[in-house]
């Protein structure tokens, strides 16, 4: 039997595919219904010891997205006490400078009283048809103001104007950011608190 594979290569190959075929049923029978459409089931199918059916049935099931997962950038705002939206962005322009395909346009606001530049973006545009999802803007932003989103279900029937995201589409609350990237948000908040300490 030892040299069976060597002598009957095709038979051995067919054995492998047949093994795969039957295994899908055996695993399903053993693991039962819990295997599908449950969080544990999805998680089990991503482990290194998974056997049998490998499919994650999107859209009914969804692969858990890792925290670092990145699609498009968005702008984080802090919610004020009266419901106002305080953008963290100071229009410093680092993101637009570091952006490899140069898809970020920032129009810095001017203070109406003095006429000098004020640290807010008056307009902020990202052309999502050019964006390469590299994450540099989020990585090098010194104010934790621009972050990478997890939302990938973006397909639509048109492009053009609707694919140049302005402030209204880009702004998302800090609570959303904390929900998609809890560990990062906590670490950054701690770092900011640390920075603020000596001043106080």
């Amino acid at each position: 039997m030892k040299n069976f594979g060597k002598r009957f290569g095709v038979m051995s190959s067919l054995g492998v595919t047949m093994g795969h075929f039957f295994n899908t049923y055996i695993v399903d029978l053993v693991k039962g219904k819990k295997r599908y459409r449950t969080t544990e089931g999805i998680e089990a199918r991503r482990q290194s010891d998974t056997e049998g059916i490998f499919t994650i049935q999107y859209p009914e099931e969804q692969l858990p997205l890792p925290e670092e997962f990145r699609v498009l950038p968005f702008l984080v705002y802090d919610e004020g006490e009266n419901g106002e939206k305080n953008l963290r962005c100071t229009a410093c322009g680092i993101c637009s400078k570091v952006c490899p395909p140069q898809c970020i346009w920032i129009y810095r606001a001017t203070d109406p009283a003095t006429g000098k530049p004020s640290p807010h973006p008056a307009e902020f545009h990202i052309d999502i048809d050019i964006c390469m999802n590299c994450g540099f803007c989020a990585e090098y932003c010194p104010f934790d103001a621009i972050k990478m989103d997890h939302d990938f279900e973006l397909s639509g029937y048109t492009r053009g104007e609707s694919h140049v995201f302005g402030l209204d589409t880009l702004m998302k609350p800090v609570s959303y950011y904390e929900s998609i990237r809890p560990a990062n948000a906590a670490r950054e908040a701690a770092a900011r608190a640390e920075k603020a300490k000596p001043k106080a």
Partner: peptide, 14 residues
């Protein structure tokens, strides 16, 4: 060379 000057501080998407 990049970064292009038209992107900031007076960047309007073109």
């Amino acid at each position: 060379v990049k970064p292009y000057k038209s992107r900031w501080p007076e960047g309007k998407p073109v």
